[in-house]
Nucleic acid binder design. Structure first.
Lengths: 225, 225
DNA sequence: ACGCTAATGGAACAGGAATCCCGTTAATGA
DNA sequence: TCATTAACGGGATTCCTGTTCCATTAGCGT
């Protein structure tokens, strides 16, 4: 028989809070379940038993956070909607507490399956929350029919995450606005329409090497960008 | 007196190789310098002395990788250039070995200053490598004057990284092509021109709350997207 | 070739995180 | 209100990572 009431819930709240605090203070690498238990004034054993690892604990933090998410704003304009979406992402990532949290969960997700699943669910929910503004724009005729709403929303946030991860530059509002503008422009141009047959250019890549399989190690040169 | 020759270089090579192997096999979370030393058939002491931490070692792996990067392809078409760029990124991230490596270094960068610096330098170099194709497109008149080359290149990769991190979906070639198409469309529409005064829309955000400072915690609701 | 010493590697040591054991506390339902 | 037992908490224990010490190896200059 499970006992989610009273004490158990209190302990969970205290530990999640302590985990966030610890994360902001010492960073992801410095997280230690024993330390978190101390901050939460809870027995070490309890934390180890209920969560077992930093990644699992962060997954729970994310799940808790997801329940508190805000509804999207609703303007009547695609431009304004996307800008609001971008600003929200920018503000969240730039926020000292929430930003640290998101970076940490992104990290944890690449190491731990439960954290990855929690993260994926979180983003699925968030995209679904904002997708309607794209659908409405399509209905209004502002965007071409067949535009994939989720892709547009993802296109708004992607540059912000990429910038956060790969450059030392701060995430400011102009950056957010630029991301929104770019996503809107691409959407208007039909870049996010669902794959349609005969799209010119999809079959004419003369310069890209075959790359039959990514498994082959015929070349040692690496190359992302 | 320093002795970069012979044995030292051999040890470095063996350790970096072993680190990559270990990364692919046990993942970032499971990395252990002792284990890496064992794989490299090198004394633990040596690894601890020369690198000291997983993050520092990964930074060195990244530096080593950067030296082996391939030059960009050169077609005469912006569309083809961006597609090649996107495909290269996609192929790299989807590659079992290199993909794991990049994810790990991204992680390490958020925990360790030296890894972060190595990562930033790496992406700066990569962007600089590809930026010319945008500059050339501007010169040809394919893109509006004032277009920021680096931003266009980053816009190509951003969706791929975002997808890799936030969804369980595989990174395939259609995804890469879509990213290239979207970046091109946005660039053509002038979304990446350097900030110019009087850009209509930049000053008319009626729905976005003030958000004077991101530090304030007046609301507990969180919200990325 | 030879000597100097940077660099390595084995082994012992230390510190701390994760686990286990078991008594205590307090939610839950009758 | 009371019995039941899920869940907690403190302390001992184990395991393992990272450090230190010192002997050995092998670049490097002469």
């Amino acid at each position: 028989m499970q006992r989610p009431g009273g004490r158990t819930a209190r302990v969970r709240t205290a530990v999640l809070k302590a985990a966030e605090d610890a994360l902001v203070e010492v960073g992801f690498a410095g997280l230690d379940l024993g330390d978190i238990a101390r901050r939460a004034e809870v027995g070490r054993t309890t934390v180890y038993r209920r969560w077992g690892s930093v990644a699992a604990l962060l997954a729970d933090v994310l799940a808790d956070m997801a329940e508190q998410s805000l509804p999207r704003t609703r303007t009547g304009s695609l431009r304004e909607d996307l800008r609001a979406c971008a600003r929200l992402t920018q503000r969240t990532l730039a926020h000292p507490r929430q930003g640290a949290l998101f970076r940490a969960v992104l990290l944890a997700a690449t190491c731990d399956a439960s954290a990855a699943e929690a993260l994926h669910r979180f983003y699925r929910v968030r995209v679904d929350e904002w997708a309607p503004c794209v659908t409405e724009a399509v209905d209004r005729g502002d965007l071409p029919p067949g535009t994939d709403p989720a892709e547009v929303i993802r296109a708004v946030s992607a540059p912000l995450y990429y910038r956060m991860l790969t450059t030392p530059d701060p995430l400011d509002e102009p950056t957010a606005d630029r991301a929104a503008t770019a996503a809107e422009a691409a959407a208007r141009a039909g870049a996010f329409r669902a794959a349609q047959a005969g799209d010119p250019g999809t079959d004419t890549y003369g310069t890209v090497p075959p790359s039959t399989s990514t498994t082959g190690s015929r070349r040692t040169g690496r190359e992302p960008r």
